[in-house]
């Protein structure tokens, strides 16, 4: 029985649209007539978002030598698109904050997602990519399809997890076998629903099968490898017990030397705890 991942999204009121503030920020960033002050003003209207963004840009993720006190300055220094991308990541996390924890430990889920995002950002930094925040966001959103599956198909999700526990199979392969699609496809469909950039959508959809990426092969490869590293580091838990197979072409594509892996893990260790504290909305006890 093949079901379309888009079916999962119908009637999902909670996630039918991104928070208004994000849409306004995004529109302003894309509008060539907007000034940095305009963008700063819009962000500042949401005080909790502003506070979170300021904490993030002042953290070990950026290592700026002096403190950034205002949003406008943050936009100037970090960049409009980059700050927009960080705002996106934090907005999405906030949306899912109220999710039930029956099947999935949300703390562990975001630990893995943020871990993947941080790792991807570090790899992108090494490659001197112009906007590394884009990789942070893609990493953070790569498994978001799992949250939807758990919400809308709880029984089947449970069955899939149980099956993996006894058979030792990879969860994303069991998803395809049992549902006809995997969490990557669901995630991609959700990002499309939110009208997010095609690059984000393709990266999320193809993160387990990077060879399928047509336009954004490099970005997809980075997230794919970051995900493998995050699993090897056992950062949190998104449901997958095992390290997913590494696509050799994706590895070649990102062009990272073998010796850099150890360094990457060290940097992730240094950044992840602060990142989690700042990016996650107040965790429930």
């Amino acid at each position: 029985m093949i079901r379309n991942p888009r079916d999962l999204l119908n009637g999902t009121v909670e996630v039918s649209a991104l928070p208004m503030i994000f849409t306004r920020i995004n529109d302003a960033v894309n509008d060539p007539r907007s000034s940095i002050a305009d963008i700063g003003r819009i962000i500042s209207e949401d005080s909790s978002l502003s506070a979170r963004l300021l904490r993030i840009v002042n953290s070990v993720l950026y290592s700026f030598p002096s403190k950034i006190e205002t949003i406008t300055r943050a936009v100037t220094i970090v960049g409009t698109q980059q700050l927009r991308d960080v705002a996106l990541a934090t907005s999405v996390m906030k949306m899912f904050a109220e999710m039930s924890e029956d099947l999935l430990n949300m703390e562990a889920f975001w630990h893995h997602s943020i871990g993947c995002g941080i790792t991807a950002r570090i790899l992108a930094s090494y490659r001197r990519e112009p906007n590394v925040e884009r990789f942070l966001v893609a990493g953070m959103l790569h498994d978001i399809g799992r949250l939807l599956i758990h919400t809308k198909m709880a029984d089947q999700a449970r069955a899939a997890l149980l099956r993996c526990e006894s058979s030792g199979e990879l969860l994303y392969k069991v998803e395809v076998d049992e549902f006809g699609f995997d969490h990557a496809a669901v995630g991609g469909a959700l990002l499309q629903l939110w009208k997010l950039p095609a690059s984000l959508e393709e990266v999320v959809t193809c993160h387990h099968n990077p060879r399928r990426a047509q336009r954004y092969a490099v970005e997809t490869a980075v997230i794919h490898v970051a995900d493998v590293i995050a699993h090897a580091m056992r950062l949190g838990n998104s449901g997958e017990r095992f390290v997913p197979p590494l696509d050799s072409r994706a590895w070649e594509r990102i062009g990272i030397p073998l010796s850099y892996l150890s360094e990457t893990m060290d940097q992730v260790d240094r950044q992840i705890n602060d990142a989690i504290k700042m990016i996650r909305p107040d965790a429930r006890k």
């Binding site: 090897a232 095992f242 590494l246 050799s248």
Partner: peptide, 13 residues
């Protein structure tokens, strides 16, 4: 156990 689905022959893995 963690790496059972990967190819340990690959240098990066």
């Amino acid at each position: 156990e963690l790496f059972r689905h990967t190819d340990l022959q690959h240098l990066a893995v």
